[in-house]
Amino acid sequence: MTSHPRLTARPAGRHALLVELPDAERTAAFHAELLRRRAVGTLPPVREIVPGARTVLLDGVRDPEALARRLADWEIAPRAADDGDVVEISVRYDGPDLADVAALWGVGREEVAGLHSSRTYRVAFCGFAPGFGYLTGLPAELHVPRRATPRTRVPAGAVGLAGPYSAVYPRSTPGGWQLIGTMPDPGRLWDPMREAAALLTPGTRVRFVPTEDAA
């Protein structure tokens, strides 16, 4: 294990490193720095760069130990809040857990839409299903727990909250997030036949736009 005041590189088999950062902000900055270095050709070949909540996995690396030593010298600038593409997602705030979330936030249910849609989020990482992005950007006082009992079926397009994250379900799956709304056109989230299969990729910024449109 290679430690550093800002990051810890943990071994993950013969060809991978799991780099751990102190918090989500520095994870986003480190991820952006990896992509920048890859784009300019100063990163050794890495097959997969997979961000997590507080980690970035570098998989398919010829010499993980040598890369770990190099990482220790990197200067990593904080990520500017306005850095990265912005995607807008329309939301009807009509989810079945709207009243529960309003109660947890201590507001009326008609205020949830305004509180949720008044900030800009960023995709921290993806997982669970292709096209499913974990969005950070809710302040700590608006974090909510998962539902005590997960639903066996959450419809595609459902907009949910869990812990520090917001997300939109790209397809119907079981799920335990608190559902506050519906994206009328969830087909935009994931299309493997499209040039860019995923609408939400790590680092992308997201704004939710309240709408009254039916699906």
């Binding site: 997979v50 998989d59 398919g60 299969a197």
Partner: peptide
């Protein structure tokens, strides 16, 4: 499939 793990693939 390689190169899409960051999208959950």
């Amino acid at each position: 499939r390689y190169g899409h793990a960051h999208l959950g693939v």
